[in-house]
């Protein structure tokens, strides 16, 4: 099936989007994997788009309860592709029961796809689909979201690898996580 393209789009250009996805904290590991993989598949296979960035913010407190949940698992995506890609993703997410919220935003029109190299490794995608890793990225209270500097994003991506290993050992990290669950 050919990809739908808006008449506004110039030939060979794509659109850049960012998306925030919030899942329920009680999503089973298998379903989490399914959801993440399905999104990636929709982007890459069905719509020939690309994931530019995928940040796993992990468990965070919601500012207000959604579907009686006080916490959510946050993801931040940055993707490039055509308009139909986003509606495809949204169509899927809308039907998905473990999705609390999704919010996609167009950042730029008519982007040259070649000018946006993707630094997403298969590793990052795999981690995002791994429940154990996701929950280990528990929230640090009111941590400022990576937005100002590239360096911080890089640091945040490198840090989890070490944090993941130490999370099980250090009581500090685990107690922080269990506090939230008890509430």
């Amino acid at each position: 099936m050919p990809i739908e393209r808006s008449y506004r789009d110039e030939i060979g250009r794509e659109r850049e989007y960012e998306m925030i996805l919030i899942l329920t904290p009680d999503v089973p590991a298998t379903r989490l994997k399914e959801i993440i993989n399905r999104i990636i598949e929709t982007i890459e296979k069905k719509n020939e788009g690309r994931v530019l960035l995928l940040e796993t913010w992990g468990k965070r407190k919601l500012a207000y309860p959604i579907k009686k949940r006080r916490e959510g698992i946050y993801y931040y995506w940055r993707i490039i592709g055509h308009g139909s890609m986003v509606s495809d993703i949204e169509k899927y997410l809308r039907m998905s029961e473990f999705v609390l919220r999704f919010f996609a935003l167009r950042l730029e029109d008519n982007v040259d796809p070649a000018s946006r190299p993707s630094d997403v490794t298969p590793e990052v995608l795999k981690q995002a689909a791994d429940l154990e890793y996701v929950s280990s990225r528990g929230r640090k209270e009111e941590e400022p979201v990576a937005q100002e500097s590239e360096t911080r994003e890089e640091a945040a991506e490198k840090a989890p690898e070490t944090a993941e290993k130490s999370a099980e050992e250090t009581t500090e990290a685990s107690s922080e996580g269990s506090d939230n669950k008890e509430e």
Partner: peptide, 13 residues
């Protein structure tokens, strides 16, 4: 307003 939509900020508290 966007921040409220993704539950990073409260609509009211």
């Amino acid at each position: 307003k966007r921040s409220r939509m993704v539950a990073l900020m409260p609509f009211t508290s």
